[in-house]
């Protein structure tokens, strides 16, 4: 028996919109810890890890660990039928091949049940070790999205370099090149507008902009994005989900062939 009630149902809608283009099918895992997902894109270049902690739900019942294979495009279609203010409850049962999404209006005057078919997904689960990063950049998520979009119109890859001067985003394409530097800037009044750079060592890595631009679909989930970089490791682009958990995107760097 599974019953997860989320007052702020819009969070789940936003999570789906953030990952459905990167990953088409995935197993959602439900345990006492929370509702989670780990999945790679079809090219195995990027990985998304989502956690919505059980404490963040209004009601969380998960009698035993359950894995639900879901086509994310279909789930997104169903969640789009929920109103922006609706409360969403996810219901499932052991041994059935469906999951039900229940949408309740704030005033409780409209209740909808959408039943979706589950599927068997043979997914690989990867162990992600804790790592020390050479540099961690925290910046407004909208600013990061803007940079990725702008650079994506010029080139295919972005070189992200962190030095004590700041964080530099560089691309080159057929039409020319572009270089954007963001310096550390702390805003006391609005900490979410700050750019904070923690650097242990300078680092410079190259990534495909197509993936970075896909990650920025999570911008609506958090005002701040954290970018963790180390040579020889995938970059982690993390959006915290208010008081509930996070969505982390891992992207393998490009190297000189």
């Amino acid at each position: 028996m599974l019953e997860l009630r989320l007052i702020q149902g819009s969070l789940l809608k936003k999570v789906l919109e953030a990952i459905k283009d990167l990953v088409t099918e995935a197993n959602f895992d439900c345990s006492a810890t929370g509702f989670s997902l780990q999945a790679m894109d079809s090219s195995h270049v990027a990985l998304v890890a989502l956690l919505l902690r059980s404490e963040g739900f209004d009601h969380y019942r998960c009698d035993r660990n359950l894995s639900m294979g879901i086509n994310l495009n279909n789930m997104s279609k169903m969640l789009r039928c929920a109103g922006p203010e609706d409360i969403i409850t996810i219901k499932g049962d052991d041994g059935t091949d469906t999951v039900t999404f229940m949408f309740e209006s704030q005033k409780q005057d409209k209740i909808s049940d959408f039943e979706m078919k589950l599927m068997d997904i043979d997914s690989e689960h990867l162990g992600i070790p804790d790592a020390e990063y050479q540099a961690i950049v925290r910046m407004p998520s909208a600013e990061f999205a803007r940079i990725c979009k702008d650079l994506g119109s010029i080139g295919d890859t972005v070189v992200i370099s962190v030095t004590k001067e700041g964080v530099k985003f560089f691309t080159r394409g057929d039409v020319g090149s572009a270089n954007i530097v963001c310096r550390q800037n702390t805003s006391v009044d609005k900490p979410e507008d700050s750019t904070v750079i923690e650097m242990n060592e300078p680092v410079s890595l190259t990534f495909a902009l197509r993936y970075m631009n896909s990650f920025t679909k999570a911008t609506t989930l958090s005002e701040v994005v954290t970018i963790s970089l180390s040579s020889e490791l995938p970059v982690v682009v993390e959006y915290k989900i208010a008081e509930m958990g996070y969505i982390r995107f891992y992207l393998a760097p490009k190297i000189e062939d």
């Binding site: 090219s43 195995h44 270049v45 990867l126 070790p129 995938p234 490009k254 190297i255 000189e256 062939d257």
Partner: peptide
Amino acid sequence: KQKQQTISRFFSHD
């Protein structure tokens, strides 16, 4: 020429 690496090169299977 640049080569795209895969995630599984960095993270091991559970």
